[in-house]
């Protein structure tokens, strides 16, 4: 008690209500039904997932809804070997950018059921969902992605998305 004070804990905490907006609400409702919904730009025809409601390139509303496949391509990845506070997955694990079939933008996903040494760019993967009864409007509905067993995608097919 008589030791001088040398350290100070400074917690920073913010609690708020997140409003998903129309586009992401559609997306999350799709997730709760076990499907990935994207939106297409009427001008450049690119399909965004998760959709934000507008095209970042053309600045116009993305009016068409598109159901995407359950499979895609690992464009890039990172093997996480470093523990950090709040980590919920056992290390090492793979975090990858995944380009779903039919989408024009990759999103981040967890890869499992493959040794970390075997992950590679172009690997074909498929989404593994939680049991139907546990599906909900949350990304926790997608457990992870795993190799689909299909042949790797050629580099040219996804080089635009790196």
């Amino acid at each position: 008690m008589s030791e001088p004070v040398t350290m100070l804990e400074t917690p920073i905490k913010i609690e708020y209500e997140f409003t998903a907006g129309l586009a992401q609400s559609r997306y999350l409702k799709g997730i709760s039904e076990g499907k990935f919904l994207g939106q297409r730009c009427p001008k450049c025809t690119k399909v965004y997932v998760p959709p934000r409601g507008s095209c970042p390139t053309d600045g116009v509303p993305t009016t068409d809804e598109v159901e995407l496949g359950n499979t895609g391509i690992v464009t890039t990845y990172c093997v996480v070997n470093v523990p950090f506070q709040g980590q919920s997955i056992e290390i090492p694990y793979i975090c990858a950018q995944i380009l779903l079939d039919g989408a024009n933008i990759a999103f981040m996903g967890l890869i499992q059921e493959v040794p970390t040494a075997e992950i590679r760019m172009g690997m074909r993967v498929e989404a593994v969902w939680v049991d139907k009864k546990d599906l909900g409007p949350t990304m926790a509905s997608v457990k992870y992605f795993r190799p689909s067993g299909e042949p790797d995608a050629a580099y040219e097919t996804f080089s635009e998305y790196l």
Binding site: T6, E9, I12, E15, L22, L28, G53, T62
Partner: peptide, 25 residues
Amino acid sequence: YFPAMAESDVLRAPHVIEYTYTRST
């Protein structure tokens, strides 16, 4: 943009972001 979707269909959820720093004084 989605006529089938009413404003009330927009999802909301509580979020918490928290960092605890230990700083030397």
